[in-house]
């Protein structure tokens, strides 16, 4: 078990390393570099060479990679192309905002999805299930920006309960985002909830049809106990990985929703940086998002392993 943990950790580290190489190589292959972006039309002759020497761009690629990677490990991504901001603080603020938005949506969405999914699975093909499943399909198929726009129209414009867009700056303290954050949160929660709920529902239905649930019924176990002791522990196992994927997607920043609400998150910074050819910032964001994916999936695998006796006792004595 402990060996397994170390192996997965090592593999996760390797993945992040490979991703960092790919990101670096990808940016390397693009025509132009930071200096051509910085100097714009004046990027020629002596000025360009001087700039490249100042930025260290005349070094060979592997040396620059090592420099960049060792900085990244210590949280130092250098400064942006304009030379005006430290990337670590710039990205750090946005990351904090994205994590706050994603985390809050998760806190509401995951439990809600579990409860609704279990209810739908237990009442398969009856009214509660039909209602929940239909709503979930709507939440999944209607594009997020449509959902967002409708929510703004209803709650902000018609009812005037919450602000429709975020006006707080990127580096404001967390509490300043209330109540502006509520609508983007609601959209996130809806979409995520629908995805997870459908997995929970089908998993519960599958387990309900299993031989061991029939056996428990014929053992005289009351329905509530069957659900609690025999169905849920087995039905929720496959859900962990779906939750992980959804959560990683949320934490990495979702451009469309952030744009609609003018929310200063990681996704929007990414798009802005690309538009401004701010390659150091793009590199930093890509690496952070990749690390989030790896980390969240690693956590999910570990949780699955802890919760599943088959995996947990994989290396113990067998008869």
């Amino acid at each position: 078990m402990l060996r397994m943990l170390f192996r997965r950790l090592a593999l996760g580290g390797l993945t992040v390393f490979l991703v960092s190489v790919i990101i670096f190589a990808g940016v390397e292959m693009l025509p132009g570099d930071a200096c051509t972006a910085y100097l714009e039309r004046e990027a020629q002759g002596q000025r360009l060479e001087n700039c490249r020497r100042d930025f260290g761009l005349d070094q060979p690629a592997h040396a620059r990679y090592l420099d960049w990677a060792s900085g990244a490990i210590q949280g130092d991504f250098g400064s942006n192309v304009a030379g005006t901001r430290d990337i670590a603080t710039l990205v750090g603020d946005r990351l904090k905002n994205s994590l706050m938005l994603g985390g809050l949506s998760m806190l509401v969405g995951v439990p809600l999805a579990l409860v609704l999914g279990v209810i739908a699975g237990l009442t398969r093909d009856r009214l509660p299930d039909l209602t929940i499943s239909t709503l979930a399909i709507f939440a999944m198929t209607i594009p997020e920006f449509v959902t967002a726009t409708v929510l703004i129209l209803v709650f902000s414009i018609w009812l005037n309960w919450v602000p429709g867009i975020v006006l707080t700056g990127a580096s404001a303290p967390a509490l300043d985002y209330f109540p502006e954050i509520l609508l983007p949160m609601a959209v996130f929660t809806l979409v995520m909830c629908a995805h997870i709920l459908r997995t929970v529902r089908s998993s519960v239905i599958e387990v309900l049809g299993s031989d061991y649930v029939q056996m428990a019924t014929l053992k005289g176990v009351p329905r509530g106990q069957i659900v609690r002791r025999h169905v849920l522990p087995n039905a929720l196992l496959p859900v962990i990985n779906v939750v992980a994927l959804t959560v990683a997607w949320l934490l990495g920043g979702v451009v469309v929703i952030e744009t609609v609400f003018n929310f200063p998150g990681l996704g929007r910074l990414m798009v802005e940086s690309i538009a401004m050819r701010d390659l150091p910032t793009v590199q930093a964001i890509a690496l952070i998002v990749a690390t989030i994916y790896v980390g969240v999936n690693l956590t999910a695998d570990m949780l699955t392993m802890l919760a599943n006796p088959r995996l947990r006792t994989l290396h113990t004595r067998r008869p």
């Binding site: 031989d211 428990a216 014929l218 005289g220 002791r229």
Partner: peptide, 23 residues
């Protein structure tokens, strides 16, 4: 429920699948 598993019990076909894997 009071009768099943008490006065009248079942021994299933495939016990490998009839025992709850998480218990």
């Amino acid at each position: 429920q009071a009768i099943r598993g008490h006065a009248l019990a079942l021994i299933p076909q495939n016990s490998g699948q009839a025992l709850t894997p998480s218990m």
